[in-house]
Design a protein around this nucleic acid. Structure first.
Lengths: 221, 221
DNA sequence: AAACATAATTATGAATTCATAATTATGTCA
DNA sequence: TGACATAATTATGAATTCATAATTATGTTT
């Protein structure tokens, strides 16, 4: 795990939830690893009480698993969890696409279009980090564009949980090209504000991503 | 096997999360009301530490709202939350319907059919409590039949959150009749294991329920 | 050495304590 | 009396303490 300097926010546990969740997502704490309560207390300069409160929350979010009298461990990203999660995310994105076409302003759409162009540039330059960044920004903008807090919250939680698996397998050239093509059609439907079609393409987009991911996983083992 | 009736949960906070969540759902603690930390500690015979841990978890689940230095309040069921939640539940049920047709055994389906008959009987007898009970059991069986833990968890959480609003408006005779009709078609598609159709009907079923609910809400104010 | 018993140490769940923010009660003066 | 200041009380967030479960270290016997 990496270090972090002391903090100041509304309440300690709220800050700790975010910080430790990020540690898990960013792989600072690895799946299966024991969460070092004592070390984290020292690293963040807090007592066990708020830290343990944070761990309870993270457990309910699925990032951590509590074992009675045995502390907390970082939750594993199982194959089953991935298989269960992708279809749910796909449906949430479908709904988001439909709603985004209703709620986004022309300016918002122009902004997403700009992001899309940047993403295509990153693809042409074979710049994976920039591609991921723009890609995430686009999906986030579309989810946010749905103006549905429940949808957004649940999507964010699920996306964060499976994001930990992003390094388990890497993006193939074929999948990358296909993803770009799918995004092109998404942009077309967004421009014409065809919610049903945008939703449909976003759903399939995630399903394809899922299939490619699982294929990559199987290829490894 | 044993009928584990005295499942003493390993840790106090886990037990408290369920107990207090139930208090909120069953309206023992009303929306907007301050959560009486002291009283609950005495009532459950625990100290503040596990109880406050439980409140943090319930806050992340959306059942309570924490106010810094001002304790916890039971979250209100706002109109916006209902408007955001129903569409998400509808999509989750749609997916559940599709998956249930794949994963449920003939025996499982026969069991649901029995529940359905009991529900229809309750309708004919105008027995609302029995109707609600059977109705919930059917939906729960279909969600569970999807064999997707992520789907099940998120659906359960959302359903619990809006269930608190069930007494805000009551089931009209027209909506009740329509719901029964929708369930009839659901059963037909389940019997023929037509997942796409079952999913479609379940989605529309929830959307109709939503519309009726909102109409009832507006009629009151 | 290896296997096992047992003692020392550490980690964990939960109660208690403590400092301070928020709230309520009391007193003062117009 | 009523508005306002201030003191007493209570509630809250967080640190600390405490009892015990789990783990590690040590010793004994073969």
């Amino acid at each position: 795990m990496t270090l972090a300097e002391t903090i100041k926010r509304p309440t300690l546990h709220q800050e700790l939830v975010d910080r430790i969740r990020n540690l898990v997502i960013e792989d600072g704490l690895k799946p299966g690893e024991k969460v070092p309560e004592k070390e984290l207390c020292e690293a963040f300069g807090v007592s066990r009480t708020p830290l343990r409160e944070a761990l309870k929350v993270l457990a309910s979010e699925g990032f951590v698993v509590l074992q009675t009298n045995r502390g907390a461990r970082v939750a594993e990203v199982t194959r089953q969890e991935l298989e269960d999660t992708f279809p749910v995310i796909a449906r949430l994105e479908q709904l988001a696409g439909e709603l985004a076409c209703v709620h986004l302003s022309d300016t918002d759409i122009a902004g997403i279009e700009a992001r899309h162009k940047a993403m295509v540039s990153a693809y042409k330059a074979q710049d994976r980090p920039s591609y991921f960044k723009e890609n995430q920004a686009i999906h986030k903008a579309l989810i946010g564009g749905a103006k549905n807090k429940i949808l957004e919250d649940h999507h964010k939680l699920l996306a964060a949980r499976i994001q930990r698996a992003r390094f388990m397998v890497n993006l193939s050239d074929e999948r990358w090209a296909a993803a770009i093509a799918e995004h092109e059609t998404m942009m077309e439907h967004l421009q014409s504000r065809d919610g049903d079609m945008l939703g449909q393409v976003m759903k399939v987009h995630i399903e394809n991503k899922f299939r490619a991911f699982m294929k990559g996983l199987d290829a490894q083992s």
